[in-house]
Design a protein around this nucleic acid. Structure first.
Length: 428
RNA sequence: GCGGGCGUCGCCAAGUGGUUAAGGCAGCGGCUUGUGGCGCCGCUAUUCGGGGGUUCGAAUCCCCUCGCUCGCCCCA
């Protein structure tokens, strides 16, 4: 018998699929972000920041109505002006929109990077949240296969530099849009003859997005598809030539790749080069980085016909991999811990702490007012190199006691108080 | 959206129908009203994610719900 809900005193908690990043995680994230910025900086790529919220149309038109992302995963709602708004499910569409809106493409080819939260309404599991974070790269106005190579190598080098091993670069060419139209027809008629052997999911896709059937993980469907026409057979000479140049370039950089003819990717806008960087250590959500070329998207969104290519790295998955290799989270450790107690000592300790911080030292000030022994114990546990002891006796003479926490204390060693100026000279 | 597993203190974790819900770590206080690595002592869950039910009695059984997790799907 169903009961009425009484949520009156329910605990407040984050929404499903929305994770807090606690201090044990944030230092790792910061390291990733710093490293990524370095790589972007060295390749002369500018940051672009766009709103989290966009018109729903941007995504339905850009990503494709038939895709899962648009069809069932968007966080959409009507605002007070009855406009349909959507929390961005990915970054590319927004970057393209901003570039068109501000006429950036008229200034020639652009290299952009972005980072931030994305939202997809999905069932959470390892490496998949409803709010997740991506760092992404978009090269707008580049057609040369060398741009594909540069874009891929930036992702590869960044991940390697972060210490990841065991990565696989999966590569495919989706050909031009014309190639795909031809192939789509061929595949469709081939599949129609074998309708009865398809699994239900694939059957649903038959007329909406037949290429995605290639990606099916259903065994019987996979077996069936072994005989199916492949996209590579339908690539034009130009497309093949283009793909060869990308492969040759990667070889020159000694970036290993695996050809995966079934790599189709879920967003409609991809053409030619499509790739994913995967790790076997991630469980079923194995893609750390995914991307590809999208030569028709900009035009489709109302901009000038402009070729482009980009990728996105999933921060949570990246952090997951780095945590596996390096399970000890860094805690923030002070250099100097200030022990203080007393009506004169406490305000003086704040002054001393500020002076030291202004001299660029990492200082933790004990704010408890508890006994010296307690504070010293905390100083020791904090991992600080130095303790500064300030009681009323010292404060009245503007002195402090400096203690080296790395040495073992002898029973009755009493340190001499030193003048503040002397201390500051030492910590300059 | 579908299927499996799980949910006891900040963290780890015992308890599987019967008096006060082990223990460890961390935290706080004391031994030491001004001196740290150790030690000892004490404190910290009227409550077992939440709600309802069964029962003389439930953390333990049942139902609903929330969340986590694994797989499917999909993707970063």
């Amino acid at each position: 018998m169903p009961q009425a809900n009484k949520p009156s005193l329910e605990k407040l908690q984050a929404l499903r699929g929305m994770a807090d990043l606690l201090p044990s995680q944030t230092s790792l994230w910061q390291q990733i972000e710093v490293k990524a910025r370095e790589h972007f900086h060295r390749s002369v790529i500018s940051e672009l920041r766009t709103p989290l919220l966009e018109q729903t149309q941007l995504f339905s038109r850009g990503i494709g109505e038939a895709t899962d992302v648009v069809g069932k995963e968007m966080y959409s709602f009507l605002d007070k002006g009855d406009r349909s708004c959507t929390l961005r499910p990915e970054g590319t569409a927004s970057v393209v929109r901003a570039s068109i809106q501000h006429g950036l493409l008229k200034q020639g080819p652009q290299r952009f990077w972005y980072s931030g939260p994305m939202f997809r309404y999905e069932r959470p599991q390892a490496g998949r949240q409803r709010q997740f974070h991506q760092i992404g790269l978009e090269y707008l106005g580049f057609n040369n296969p060398c741009s594909d190579i540069e874009v891929i190598s930036i992702a590869w080098d960044l991940l390697e530099d972060l210490g990841l091993t065991d990565l696989t670069l999966e590569l495919n060419s989706l050909g031009s849009n014309e190639d795909r139209v031809t192939y789509r027809e061929a595949l469709l008629s081939w599949l129609e003859e074998r309708k009865n052997d398809l699994d239900p999911d694939s059957l649903n896709r038959l007329y909406t997005n037949p290429l995605r059937i290639l990606d099916s993980k259903v065994k019987s469907t996979q077996t069936l598809l072994r005989e199916a026409p492949t996209l590579s057979e339908y690539l034009s000479a130009d497309s093949i030539n283009r793909f060869e140049r990308v492969k040759t370039g990667l070889e020159a950089l000694e970036i290993p790749y695996t050809l995966n003819p079934r790599l189709v990717r879920g967003l409609d806008y991809y053409s030619h080069t499509a790739f994913e960087i995967t790790s076997s250590q991630l469980g079923s959500q194995s893609t750390v980085c995914g991307g590809g070329r999208y030569d028709k998207l900009i035009e489709q969104l109302g901009g000038p016909s402009t070729p482009a290519i980009g990728w996105a790295i999933g921060m949570e998955r990246l952090a997951l991999l780095l945590t596996q290799n390096n399970p000890v989270p860094n805690k923030s450790i002070p250099e100097i811990y200030i022990v203080n107690r007393g009506v004169t000592a406490e305000p003086f300790a704040i002054v001393v702490g500020r002076l030291l911080r202004q001299s660029n030292h990492k200082v933790e000030l004990d704010l408890s007012g508890s006994a010296f022994s307690k504070q010293l114990k905390r100083a020791d546990r904090s991992g600080a190199r130095w303790a500064l002891l300030i009681g009323d006796n010292e404060a009245e003479e503007e002195k402090v006691i400096l203690k080296d926490l790395k040495t073992i204390p002898s029973k009755d060693s009493q340190e001499e108080p030193i003048k503040l100026e002397i201390l500051m000279r030492q910590f300059n």
